[in-house]
Amino acid sequence: MSASTIIFYIVSALVLVFGAMSVFTRMIFRAAIYLLFSLIGIAGIYILMNMDFIAALQVLIYVGGIIVLIIFSIFLTHQSGDKLPKPLFKRIVVAAGMSAFGLILTLGVFYRTAFKATTEMGVDHSARNIGRQMLDYHHHGYVYPFEIVSFLLLAALVGCIVIAVKIKNK
């Protein structure tokens, strides 16, 4: 087993453990922090795959952005310090069943797919190429979805401002 494989297993285990902890903890702030570590682990896996740019994006957007937003919204609820009530047994059963179903489905798909081993170089994942493809409007270009997504984000931002301003004026 090479060093990178060992590192991969360690990081994956961390991702899974923190993911599980973020689900099972009953303190909402801790859940957010565990989720944070889980997401950092995913960034680590990207690095192992030599996807530096994606890893940095993962850290910047998910960890530095989304988690900070989640933590801020937890702060604003004023209940961040309380323990959440224990869930009902019925709910635990249903949730466990659903999770098991999801797991089985994923594993089923996973084992039925034939992964082809290849020595071919994958996609060019350098920042330069990503930028080029993002702004390319010929073949395999992403300028169209990129613009649509930015438009959607702009709409979401404007919506947020409208909602926030209305509450302030109430």
Binding site: I40, D52, F53, A56, L57, V59, L60, V63, G64, G65, S126, A127
Partner: peptide, 14 residues
């Protein structure tokens, strides 16, 4: 790392 500046921005946001 080939994205050095970006890396620093991303990590320092943590």
């Amino acid at each position: 790392i080939n994205i050095g500046v970006f890396y620093i921005t991303a990590v320092s946001s943590l």
